[in-house]
């Protein structure tokens, strides 16, 4: 606990007018994850502040995606995966027995590494989440929400004339923005992004990054990325994972300019990874 306090002092001593002071939305304490007998995450303790972008960086296999998938319990789908420790979102333990993953995932949306639109029309892709959660009461309201979500995902102008065409017919970048529109349509508080740009070209990547920056006002975003530049561009906070351990976390600027741990330094300077 004292370590936490010191760290917070380090954080608050820096210049960060752009980040409002708020209690953390997500807080994890001593989270261990096992795949069968293999330990994938070791005592992860991390606070994630609201309405900001936190990037999770680290070499391949360090556990950052595993950690991300703990936050909306996607790891439940893997039979051999076991999660221990305490993960709280707005103070609620999300692994408590009374928690239902359907409402959790409506609250904590996710965008995946490869764009994965449903093989349905563009409209249906966005409308699906609204339908299953019963979020709209009329057809016109549904259409409005779909339009609004597509606008917020920066895709409306490109697809407004072909909403009936299959979502799978769009380009990779458009597909990923469609997936983002689909996620924000159900109005989650938190959006998890698992390397959302790794399958995209630089122009599409730039569009998504711009979008992430805009979305920060309404959502808490946690993004896993392999690109250090991307982490530096889009995030306010960064956590560095290495071999299943959370090595260092803090303001992005501080992590990239004056890392405290030598492993962090090696990674961001390109010596490991």
């Amino acid at each position: 606990m004292s370590f936490q306090l010191i760290e917070r002092q380090i954080l608050t001593s820096g210049k960060r007018q752009d980040i409002p002071e708020q209690p953390p939305v997500i807080s994890t304490r001593d989270v261990d994850v096992y795949y069968a007998d293999k330990k994938a995450l070791d005592k992860i303790t991390l606070d994630i502040p609201a309405n900001a972008v936190m990037s999770l960086i680290g070499p391949s296999g360090c556990g950052k995606t595993t950690f991300l998938r703990c936050l909306n319990r996607m790891n439940d789908l893997i039979d051999i995966c076991r999660v221990e420790g305490d993960i709280r979102i707005d103070g609620q333990d999300i692994y408590a027995p009374e928690v239902n993953t359907v409402s959790l995932r409506a609250h904590v949306g996710m965008v995946f590494q490869r764009p994965n639109p449903f093989p349905k029309s563009i409209f249906e892709n966005v409308a699906y989440g609204l339908r299953i959660h019963g979020l709209t009461s009329s057809k016109s309201e549904l259409a409005d929400r779909v339009e609004d979500s597509l606008k917020r995902a920066g895709l409306w102008e490109e697809v407004k004339d072909r909403l009936d065409e299959p979502g799978t017919g769009l380009s990779g970048g458009q597909q990923q923005r469609l997936c983002i529109a689909r996620t924000i349509a159900v109005q989650p508080k938190i959006i998890l992004m698992d390397e959302p740009c790794s399958a995209l070209d630089p122009i599409a990547t730039a569009k998504i990054e711009e979008l992430i920056d805009e979305m920060r006002a309404n959502f808490t975003i946690i993004i896993v990325t392999h690109s250090m530049q991307q982490a530096a561009r889009v995030s306010q906070h960064t956590a560095f994972f290495h071999m299943g351990k959370l090595v260092e976390q803090g303001e992005t600027r501080q992590i990239f300019t004056s890392p405290q741990d030598e492993r962090t330094e090696s990674y961001i300077t390109g010596r490991i990874g």
């Binding site: 996607m74 409402s103 490869r114 699906y128 299953i132 959660h133 159900v186």
Partner: peptide, 21 residues
């Protein structure tokens, strides 16, 4: 592809909805 299941589960579809939709 598992990505279809992940997509549906990721926006909060139940397992039954994921399978049948």
């Amino acid at each position: 592809p598992p990505s279809i299941r992940e997509a549906a589960l990721g926006i909060g579809a139940s397992r039954i909805q994921t399978v049948f939709h």
